[in-house]
């Protein structure tokens, strides 16, 4: 029953959105617009639902003294402080000075610091990769090394040659490989999406 409701709704909403992309028809456009507006609202609802689930999970952890209590307190504190700053009466939401301060002082620097560490982790991963798949990792490391050399910030004539080499690698071998990858991923996405729209994936469940 649940599957047939789901398939039925998918069979109505999906083709409606696709039809709106392909033909110009005011009625279809209006109906697809309504589905679109609903999707935007549902995405926001999913975000709120996700937040509520996270709160419930950590409150449960704290109540049962199960898991890392300090970590749970930190998560809840982080959520609370930003929600209070943005939802308190008189606040202007995401552009409120208190929210902007939290972004500048905590959210952005923590995210940036974690991403900065990835340089070190990435190199460590390369070293480990050699122990797992030697031939593939060797080729990947060689290609990565070539790209890094071509991007070296060198001036003068050598810098011009490196830049010309970087442009050629970007346009020809790398551009060709990534175009193939993009087309391949596009085809797989299209096939997978078409299966969902025809209800084939639901039948497989």
């Amino acid at each position: 029953m649940r599957r047939s409701i789901l398939t039925g709704i998918v069979l109505v909403t999906g083709p409606l959105v696709l039809l709106d992309l392909m033909i110009v028809n005011p009625s279809v456009h209006g109906a697809a617009g309504a589905v679109n507006e609903l999707l935007v609202l549902l995405a926001a609802a999913a975000a709120v639902g996700g937040g509520a689930t996270l709160v419930a999970h950590h409150v449960r952890n704290l109540a049962a003294a199960d898991g890392d209590s300090a970590a749970s307190i930190v998560v809840l504190l982080g959520m609370a402080v930003i929600l209070v700053a943005g939802l308190r009466p008189g606040s202007s939401g995401s552009s409120d000075p208190a929210v902007l301060w939290l972004v500048a002082g905590l959210l952005a620097p923590i995210a940036a610091s974690v991403f900065a560490l990835l340089f070190i982790f990435l190199l460590a991963a390369f070293r480990r990769g050699f122990a797992l798949r030697v031939r593939e990792t060797s080729l990947m490391a060689a290609a990565a090394a070539v790209v890094i050399v071509l991007l070296l910030p060198v001036g003068g004539q050598a810098g011009d040659w490196l830049a010309a080499g970087a442009a050629w690698v970007r346009d020809v071998p790398l551009g060709g490989a990534f175009r193939g990858l993009l087309i391949g991923i596009g085809i797989l996405v299209a096939v997978s999406a078409a299966r969902s729209l025809m209800g084939l994936d639901a039948d497989d469940e």
Partner: peptide
């Protein structure tokens, strides 16, 4: 702990936007 703080702040920010700017 910093990772958990990031998760809390990011989720809070997402919920804030969903409520204030959309719902």
């Amino acid at each position: 702990l910093m990772q958990h703080l990031l998760a809390g702040l990011a989720t809070g920010y997402l919920v804030l936007l969903a409520i204030r700017d959309v719902l």
